[in-house]
Design a protein around this nucleic acid. Sequence first.
DNA 1: ATTTTAGTGTGATAAATATCACCCAATATA
DNA 2: TATATTGGGTGATATTTATCACACTAAAAT
Lengths: 210, 210
Amino acid sequence: MLSKETLTKLFPDWEDGLYDAILNEAELKEAKAGTTLLKMGQNIKSAMLVVEGTIKLYQEDETGGEYFMYHLNPGEACAVTLVCNYHHEQSQVLAKAVTDIQYLSIPIAFMEKWLNEFKSWHYFVIKTYRSRYEELLKTIHEIAFKNMDERLEFYILKYVKQFGSIVNLTHQDIANDLNTSREVISRLLKKMEHNGWIVMNRNSFDWIKK
Amino acid sequence: MLSKETLTKLFPDWEDGLYDAILNEAELKEAKAGTTLLKMGQNIKSAMLVVEGTIKLYQEDETGGEYFMYHLNPGEACAVTLVCNYHHEQSQVLAKAVTDIQYLSIPIAFMEKWLNEFKSWHYFVIKTYRSRYEELLKTIHEIAFKNMDERLEFYILKYVKQFGSIVNLTHQDIANDLNTSREVISRLLKKMEHNGWIVMNRNSFDWIKK
DNA sequence: ATTTTAGTGTGATAAATATCACCCAATATA
DNA sequence: TATATTGGGTGATATTTATCACACTAAAAT
């Protein structure tokens, strides 16, 4: 089980009572890398706070397409699950574990209660929304104004920032995340290789630009 | 000046003290249709609550491109200006008045204060962020998965919902909002005309689909 | 009434991306 | 070791969107 100490490190801005509330009411869950944690259209029954590992958030198309938006890391929460009313809100996003993860699952019944009881929870919710709103703005900026080569670079840089400069993704993985085809990614990566930005291997490549 | 009664109608969920605080601290401002209210990169000095008229929110490119995201209507607030810290936050969006507008301008010094004092303000901020987050998701969905013809239809439908079925926009206006060129819009509108979805006039067209 | 300007129509062409077809090589599996 | 599977390379072609060029017309300005 989770210690108050760990919680304090993950969520340093909370007040004391909130840690206790979490320890009492939240369930610590685990999921293997690759698990889908939230599908589009799915009813939201609990909030999700990341304790360990990384989650990727996607916009999902009816026809199966996906577009990667941002990472969720330990100490962060999935904004869409922080609902403040019971009225069966449906998820607008797709969430996948990219590593093995641990997360706190909090029944949405507590959302409103805690908003009333804990100022620091209130701030946490606002902070979460604000930062995710900003991530979405960045995403829109990329798709609306940039060509695929620049979007690919932006995508790789996000990966590198998260996991380091050895990118363990297949071309197909990347194509899925950017809602394009494998051939397009292969050709663009080949260009990056020619430019000396990456060193390519099977199943991975190394980002060496600058 | 603004009456408490008007405020109550615009913001029905607030508590009594908050109306007074607004009446004391907020400044009622006006702007003509077409005014730019917030530029990208601009320092945020005050929050903006719409009292009268409609504001359009854009993502802005360094090179002058724009992409329309959503409308702000009376009773709604600009999420990006609802900052909860003083540290010279910069606007990530472009906001333009599309009609003559009236809005409340609140120095950001009060943001944090009111978060502590008024629960209803806290809820208002969260509600604002949540609904704008959802608007951004819709925008991403459009750009990431749809071709220009579908995006144009989505765009027109947003307009129609706001202002009625007579669309008083030039092809160039629309092209700017969708970050494309006038020719592209002209051709797509011509197709819609052939399909019997619109009746075209100079400077406007009429949406008659279904 | 004439000129200017803004809004629109449209062909030609270019660029970006998507799709199809098929190949080869590395790795996993039988 | 043989075979199947997965990851990747690449030409050909189609589609979508962008760009250029220019013509036409309604409305506005002179």
